[in-house]
Design a protein around this nucleic acid. Structure first.
Lengths: 353, 353
DNA sequence: GTGAAAGCGCTAACAT
DNA sequence: ATGTTAGCGCTTTCAC
């Protein structure tokens, strides 16, 4: 009868199912059944024994037997980006009420790290929520072949067999374009993300489509492709401001680039609102505090995380054969004051108020 | 000879140490030794077998044998707060190069959640990095009694037997006070956090001490205690602005309250810089973009996380008996433009430039 | 409804 | 340097 010194009323036995069984005067099988929720005659005695020993099932033993880890991984490119930390919060909050715990994996936007993490974590989790750093198709497919449930977030892959939770990037970008046009702008520029990934591509396309639909066709100079990073936004805005004919309005396709763009504008002492209108994709927590407050397309990131978590939970519940779900959450235009009608000069193509 | 359908060149055996041993023509013990790094004659054969089977040790089995989980938990009050997400990034980056993975646990500032999480997670991790939501002493002590290594971050407890990584809150607050005094302010207010926790108490004390040392004694009205939250900062600043004799400078003791305070100022159309100087504790990522750019006390949050992770790693390496370390990282005054000399009227107590 | 016993994959004696 | 074996704590047949 092995004992262990646990801070209780007295020297207690080690908290194993065996000892619980012994104390309750039944077999381990019965305790196991009780734990699983089966009907058991000696339920009371078992309950008492569990309490007395402070018994908690040993996860490792369970895992070894069952192959279930009661853990999931959330893989994000940059946890410091408010979008991803909100996402993380949503994910975490859903799993808090389940036996699953969440590994946080930060890839620093490096797909090599992502691959390594994916490979490592595959062997110790039951499912993965993945916000891919780069959209290479191979890795996740490879992982899922092993039967690992994956929910894609933020970015999708051509392989539609994964569950995914996206936001309506196209709609958001279109409403940004619409807003600018309706204010009377026609010299409209975009600082776009890379076309190689979903948000970059879809936002670009949505924005341009809506512009074109309204008869606005930005010159090549007005279309700046960048990398979704602050420095990229900074550079792109620089290029825009060096143009002989500057745009009167700029759409920045994500939060980091928006920050960079705003920094450039500040450096160059270009007055937002008066000289140039700016609209960003993703709200900034200090957006309302900027001068002028920033008009943005907002997306429900925390809800997105929670939704992804629920989707994954469904798979973990054993529903591996169900059709993949592709959920798209709506975005929302938040009108503040950084977008105003263009300074009255040449412009007429749009729909002036 | 059980087989499993893994996407390889052919039907492969299950990736267990047993099969590796069989393929290599040795015993499992030898493989185990090889895995541990022991000198082994048949190293090459084993290596080959491992490759061929795509063998990876089953963590659950290892855990069951060894009691090691190769997991740690990072418990934070609010992952969306940039301070904590930076912290998380630092922690994660250190553990990435180790066999340990990091559970992210968000407590939403609720100590009940924290207790529950601590209790749950205790049974499945080897160590904990804890940024306590509230400084109740019981929980962690209780946990550590079980022999669980804990590293405290951001807040300390009276029980000094835990490792901890703090920043020099007192020094930071003092340098804020000094900065304000040196600019010539004497009507100085503080929006303080609760005195019930370390950062709240130490920042308050540091700030007031330095003020007093310089002959500045703010009236009671100028000392607003709040809750470290945005809404709290907002309310506190409201109270300050309702005063007949307003302060000419305000110190906000953390990032969230600073944001709230700035919102109030914006609502009330109080011109920062001209009418009132503001200095915050914690940098804001958009701080430089505000108008005027915000002067702040910055602290190295990512480094703090990394340091905590290294401390924990040391304990995990088996050094449970070593003396606890209490590391204090320096803060840094970042002078931007939100603090300027007071509007020229009554003031003389300070040390005008 | 219950118990006995096998075995998940691994490591650490213990022997050789 | 290597093999044999017991056993970590749990779940699950299989018999009763």
């Amino acid at each position: 009868m092995k004992t262990i010194s646990v801070g209780g009323t007295s020297g207690l036995q080690a908290a194993t199912i065996n000892n619980v069984a012994r104390v309750a005067g039944v077999s381990t099988a019965t305790v196991s059944r009780f734990l699983r929720g089966d009907q058991v005659r000696s339920a009371d005695a078992i309950k008492a024994a569990i309490d007395r020993l402070g018994y908690r099932p040993t996860l490792a033993a369970r895992s070894l037997r069952s192959g279930i880890h009661y853990a999931v991984a959330m893989i994000v490119p940059d946890i410091v980006n408010p979008y991803f930390s909100s996402l993380a919060k949503g994910v975490e909050s859903v799993f808090r009420d389940t036996p699953y715990r969440v590994f946080l994996c930060n890839t620093d936007e490096q797909s090599a790290v992502e691959d390594a993490v994916l490979d490592e974590v595959m062997h110790r989790v039951d499912g993965i929520i993945l916000a891919p750093a780069v959209e290479q198709e191979d890795a996740p497919t490879h992982v899922r072949e092993q039967g690992m449930p994956i929910v894609l977030v933020d970015r999708e892959l051509s392989d539609k067999s994964f569950d995914s939770v996206l936001v309506d990037n196209g709609g958001g970008a279109r409403s940004a374009a619409r807003h600018l046009c309706e204010l009377g702008h026609s010299r409209i520029a975009i600082i776009s993300g890379p076309l190689s990934n979903t948000p970059g591509r879809v936002r670009y396309k949505g924005f341009m489509d809506e512009l074109n639909r309204r008869g606005v066709f930005p010159p090549g100079d007005f279309v700046q492709f960048s990398n979704f990073k602050e420095s990229g936004g900074q550079d792109a805005m620089h290029r825009l401001m060096q143009l002989a004919d500057r745009p009167t309005a700029v759409f920045c396709a994500n939060n980091s680039m928006t920050i960079g763009a705003l920094k450039t504008l500040k450096d160059l002492k270009v007055a937002i609102g008066r000289e140039i209108s700016v609209i960003g994709f993703d709200d900034l927590d200090l957006g309302p505090l900027l001068d002028p407050p920033l008009t943005v397309i907002d997306r429900p990131s925390e809800e997105q995380g929670a939704t992804a978590a629920r989707l994954l939970l469904r798979r973990l519940g054993g529903t591996m054969d169900k059709e993949p779900e592709h959920i798209v959450l709506p975005t929302r235009l938040i009108v503040r004051a950084s977008c105003v009608p263009p300074p009255s000069e040449q412009h007429s193509t749009g729909t002036p108020s």
